[in-house]
């Protein structure tokens, strides 16, 4: 077995700090899959995961927020039971009917982060104006739905409208509740973003 013989190249403190938060938020995203809300309309359980995507963008910014959700997807592909219904494995990302949502999660987190923080320098989201936060989360949610519907319609050969009825419409009310919760969390100012 080859051993590295070069000098130790330490990772900078601020990178370690941001990375640890991103990695643990990815684990929280996986843990959120077990907290289900009883919801009659949907065939799959409604989980907190979209809320965690919002929080990743809001509190980690565009760079580490997106990276955090990428870590979540990579861990799921490696077999961690982090996807809804506590499943994992590369097949879920490659072919599951709702994998379109998963693929758009990191993009949505990065977009929310970019819109709220207006760049890669982190600000406290509690200081951002309310319309900005609401608008950014709304755009993120629309993006997630677009990804999920396009993927489902491509995979199963249904039309976009049919895909919307199968995988989007049943979830809209629950996701709007999560959007409201994300705003309440930001306005509470109880999370330290640094």
């Amino acid at each position: 077995m080859a051993t590295e013989r070069s000098d130790v190249d330490l990772i900078e403190g601020d990178v370690v700090h941001a990375f640890a938060r991103a990695a643990l938020l990815a684990a929280l995203m996986g843990a959120a899959a077990i907290v289900t809300i009883p919801y009659p309309l949907s065939p799959a359980p409604v989980t907190l995961q979209v809320l965690v995507v919002f929080l990743a963008g809001l509190y980690l910014g565009p760079l580490w927020g997106g990276a955090s959700i990428v870590l979540y997807l990579a861990a799921g592909a490696a077999g961690a039971p982090v996807f809804s219904g506590m499943t994992g494995g590369p097949g879920v990302l490659l072919a599951e009917p709702t994998a379109g949502f998963l693929w758009t999660f990191p993009v949505a987190a990065a977009l929310v982060g970019l819109l709220v923080h207006r760049g890669t320098t982190l600000i406290d989201p509690a200081d951002a104006s309310l319309p900005l936060v609401v608008g950014s989360l709304g755009i993120g949610l629309v993006l997630i739905y677009a990804g999920g519907m396009v993927w489902f319609s491509w995979l199963t050969g249904t039309s976009i409208v049919e895909a919307g009825f199968a995988v989007a419409v049943p979830f809209v009310p629950a996701d709007l509740l999560k959007l409201a919760a994300a705003i309440a969390i930001v306005r509470s100012g109880r999370i330290d973003p640094t």
């Binding site: 938060r21 938020l25 929080l55 330290d192």
Partner: peptide, 23 residues
């Protein structure tokens, strides 16, 4: 919404506490 907010708020603050100790 109340329940989701509590879950998200407490979950996130515990996660960040653990992350800061891990870092």
């Amino acid at each position: 919404v109340d329940r989701l907010t509590t879950l998200g708020l407490l979950g996130l603050s515990r996660t960040f506490d653990r992350a800061d100790r891990l870092s």
